[in-house]
Design a protein around this nucleic acid. Sequence first.
DNA 1: ATAGGCGCCTGCTGGC
DNA 2: TGCCAGCAGGCGCCTA
Length: 280
Amino acid sequence: MPELPEVETVVRDLRGPLVGKRLAGVRTSRKKLRRLWSPKWNRAVAGHTVCSLSRRGKWILIDLDGPQLLIHLGMTGQLMVVPSRKARQDHTHLVFALDDGTEELRFRDVRRFGCATLLADRSALMRFFQDAKLGPEPFELDPVFWRKCLQHTRRNLKAILLDQRVVAGVGNIYADETIFEARLHPRLLGQELSRQQAERLRMAIVVVLRRAIEKRGSSIRNYVGGSGLKGEYQNEFRVYGRTGKACVRCRKPIERIVLAGRATHFCPQCQKARRRKTAV
DNA sequence: ATAGGCGCCTGCTGGC
DNA sequence: TGCCAGCAGGCGCCTA
């Protein structure tokens, strides 16, 4: 479910119900997440107030006015504030009681590819992202840096867009939609792009992600934002999940291949395999 | 440097 | 109808 637009939607939805609230206590399930929640963090969190919520790539950052709570939703993670009386759904791994305990913040993750971790302060947070070599936000992607990432690599466009060190937040859906928007073939190599094509791709990322955020992300399967409202961008997919269906531009059937180990959808007519030979 | 494969998990769908 | 392979929005690790 969660790529950048979905994570951004969750963060926006949760600001209202969460900012200013005090975390009273933490309860954990026995099942282990990818990065195990350490019991000693329970005390480190208790009594702290949520100062702000933000997003970095696909990470959710909860600033506890000192300690930094970091959550990644993986493939199936959900984060929501609900009345405590409401029955806990299966696969709820972390529960933070809020204020007087009438409400709680719940982290639920069916496949447990997500994780939650606590860092001591902002500088630890900086170090965390540095160690991960997390790339820039798509909306602040410097054209010169971007070109450098493409110029000398023999990786294909799909692999490059999925690489969080190049640009943070793009996943499988938005990679396909972005490459279609730029009218490039996903199998093209970074080094094969002309300067204009590289710039077209960079702008396509921004266009696609902005639009997806406007539509509150994509709800395929059962994704809902932090408020329980569904996303609508799935109704605007032009290639993702449309194998065999007519291209919205040229009516040719959309094809599905595997690149970088992931299902990849594209229009064989609109997205040319080879860059046009430039007359020298 | 880079592609490809696997593993981590659970649940749903489509084809037989 | 029932079963099971295949597939799913992420990511880290290993090998060649």
